[in-house]
Amino acid sequence: MHEVGIMESALDAVTAQARDHGAIQVHRIVLRIGALSGVEKDALRLAFDAVARGTPAAGADLFIETVPARGRCPECDLEFDVESDFVFTCPKCGRISGELVQGRELELATIEMS
């Protein structure tokens, strides 16, 4: 359950942003989570409910956007979407690539506050 620690750092950042912008209530938080980040969305939500208590983000709407995995074939110099099995098969030449260009994101994207 490393999601608790990750959510804590997200809320630290959210609280700091709210303070810097003179806001007292956070309405919506958008996270971007890569399909290969190793982080579970449901566990993040569970952690959010527990960790947000007593912060300006309590009761805020948590929106988690999944960033799909994308690979790159070095032979064809081609970027491509990866299926759910995470085997990075180049759609052009069929080789399996180890190059990941997207999918590990763990990002606090936007905050709505007033």
Binding site: I6, S9, Q17, L106, E107, E112
Partner: peptide, 11 residues
Amino acid sequence: TRTIEVRMSLL
């Protein structure tokens, strides 16, 4: 209500 773009890594 304002929307702030943060784009910060959680790690």
